[in-house]
Simulated assay, not measured.
Amino acid sequence: MKSVLLLLIAIISEVIATCALKESAGFTRLLPSLILIIGYGIAFYLFTISLEQIPLGIAYAVWSGLGTVGTILVANLLWDEK
């Protein structure tokens, strides 16, 4: 159960980092760039730990699926993207 929670936190961190990627304007804005770097660092670290208990194929499918849905929802809410 701990691994599933770590995977979910990793996904949330990845979605935050991906949204910061848009806001960083090509790494020209400091705060979004820092959020991006830290967010991806946390995401990949927690993803790696979750792989100790969750098979790679399942973890990656959940990661990519929920990450995509989360990013779409945030983009829709924050930037009115369709």
Rank of each mutant, 00 (worst) to 15 (best):
L56Y: 13
G39L: 09
L34P: 01
L34Q: 09
S24M: 07
T71I: 09
S24A: 15
L34M: 11
K22E: 13
Y40G: 02
V74S: 03
A59I: 04
T71K: 02
F47S: 01
S50W: 01
G41K: 12
C19G: 15
L36W: 15
A75E: 12
I54H: 02
I58V: 14
Q53V: 03
S64E: 01
C19L: 15
A43P: 07
I49W: 06
T48K: 12
I35A: 07
R29I: 15
E23C: 10
L36R: 09
L21S: 13
S33V: 08
G70I: 02
I49D: 11
E23Q: 09
V69N: 00
P55R: 14
R29S: 10
S33Q: 10
L31S: 08
F47P: 00
L21T: 15
I72R: 01
L51F: 04
K22A: 14
Y60R: 08
G57E: 03
T28M: 08
L30Y: 12
G39M: 08
R29W: 08
A59P: 10
P32L: 09
R29L: 15
S50F: 01
S24C: 14
C19P: 00
A59V: 07
V74N: 03
I72K: 07
L21I: 14
S33L: 06
G57F: 08
P32K: 05
R29V: 15
A20W: 08
P32V: 12
G57L: 05
G70D: 04
T71P: 00
G57A: 11
L73K: 03
R29F: 11
L21D: 04
G41L: 13
F27H: 04
Y40P: 04
L66S: 03
A75L: 13
L46M: 11
G26T: 11
V69R: 04
L73W: 09
G65L: 08
I49E: 14
V69I: 15
I38N: 05
V62E: 05
S64P: 05
I49K: 14
L30H: 08
Y45A: 10
F44W: 12
T28H: 09
G41V: 07
Y40E: 02
V74T: 12
V74F: 10
E52A: 14
G57C: 06
P32G: 10
V69G: 02
V62G: 03
T28Q: 11
A25Q: 13
S33I: 07
P32N: 11
L21R: 00
S64R: 13
L51M: 14
T68M: 11
T48I: 03
T68C: 04
V69D: 01
W63T: 03
T48L: 06
L73T: 07
